[in-house]
Amino acid sequence: MKILQVVHGFPPRQRAGTEIYTYYLSKELAKRHEVHVFYPTLENVKEPILVSFNQEGLILHELKLPRSKVRRFLGALFFENTYINREAENAFKTMVASIRPNVIHFQHLIGLSATLIKIAREFNVPTVLTLHDYWFMCPNIQLLRHDYTVCIGPEPRRCHKCWIKRRSEEISELLNSSYGVPQSLARKSLRLVLETLNSPRKFIERENYMKALLLKVDRIIAPSKFVRKLFIDYGVPEDKITYSENGYDLRVFEGFKKKNKYTDRIVFGFVGGVSKHKGVHILIDAFMNIPDKKAELRIYGDYNPKSTYVREILSKAKKNIKFIGRFEDVREPYSEIDVLVAPSIWPETGGP
């Protein structure tokens, strides 16, 4: 059987939760099937390029998209660009026509195009979709409002106001880090521009379109009972959506041993991408009142030192708070800590 996995990033280039899950699932499936993986990257190219190659028993199809900051800035101003990408559509059509998969498993479509589901249907290929977050119902992805409080659920007109505020923050930060434009100066102007270019009607259209796409998928997988109920309440038929926890190949931990500690302090650890929705700032704030000699905090995972959020938490960190950064061996963090902490402020999809 030919299986096509579609995801918004793939190791070793991208190593967050969904990407790593897709990697291990693909490797396991490749023991019995021909597995293809389609994913995007940002590169120094003028036009999109689709490159295919073999790696670790998988057939990878890497869509290289232009990295241009000007292009990204202009694209970020229009709401429809957050879920529709004609360049990704064209590359996907070419690839599907070439490999003729027997089934397509959509892991995530952000950075690609939600319309790939419709294209798969046009090719009469059975489809599976795993809900790794709330992108199909929430334009901000994590069911968090612009101020990072938990949202009770999507409503297009409310989503419009929320997205405008969040997007103006994101673009103003990009302008600040890339061109030195003061965020306070850019933020208000950006809100006016975004409101002019993106009416509430666009958010109603997105909700209707994304719901229609969910109904086109043959089978939807929810990694938690909470996610399943939420999407059933959103309009997905009960018999279309299956609860199935994300699996993980625990064989990578065979022979696992804790390293000898060089300190008597209790070592706490965070493992994951260093971003606001993961709540790293809450963890650091909590640690500020703990005496240095009592405990140590180690933060494992990628982070962008230029982002406003990372700069803020780095400036607060005491000497017993260490940013380890990216790691290659998944066992590394767990061999060096005593207590794992998950301070996420969004409703994680991998829970019960």
Rank of each mutant, 00 (worst) to 15 (best):
L58Q: 07
G325T: 08
M288A: 10
Y303D: 11
M95F: 14
P200M: 05
D338F: 14
F92A: 06
Y179R: 12
E328D: 15
F270E: 04
Y21K: 03
D338K: 12
V217A: 01
I221R: 01
Q55C: 07
P126Q: 06
R166S: 11
V217G: 00
W346C: 11
V125K: 02
N85R: 05
T196H: 09
P200G: 03
L109Q: 11
P223I: 04
N81E: 15
A30G: 11
E47Y: 05
S68G: 11
G75H: 12
N44C: 02
F253I: 07
I345E: 11
N102Q: 12
R265I: 06
F10T: 11
V35I: 10
E19G: 03
L215P: 03
F231T: 09
V267D: 00
E87T: 02
I164E: 00
L60G: 10
P200T: 05
N176W: 15
A76P: 02
L65M: 15
M95K: 04
G279D: 05
P66R: 06
H105M: 07
V310E: 02
F256K: 13
E254N: 15
T149G: 06
P156C: 08
N44W: 02
T349Q: 09
I104M: 07
I282T: 07
Y209F: 15
L112N: 10
I221M: 02
M1L: 14
E336A: 08
V310H: 01
L314H: 04
N81A: 04
E312Y: 13
L77W: 05
L129I: 07
D329V: 02
K31L: 12
A30R: 05
V150L: 14
W135K: 08
F92E: 01
Q107S: 07
A342G: 02
E312K: 14
Y300K: 06
E205H: 06
G273C: 00
F287S: 08
K319T: 14
P347V: 01
N140S: 14
G301N: 09
Y39K: 03
G153S: 09
I20D: 08
L65I: 10
L77E: 06
N124V: 02
S113R: 05
E207D: 14
I313M: 01
R13F: 10
D249H: 12
E62T: 04
Q107T: 00
S244E: 09
K257E: 14
K240S: 08
C151F: 12
K322W: 04
Y300G: 10
E254S: 14
Q107P: 04
E47I: 00
V96F: 02
Y243W: 13
D239V: 03
V339C: 11
T18F: 04
L175T: 09
G350Q: 09
C162E: 15
L283A: 05
V193F: 14
I20Q: 10
I232C: 13
I221F: 04
A97V: 00
L143M: 15
R187G: 00
K257D: 08
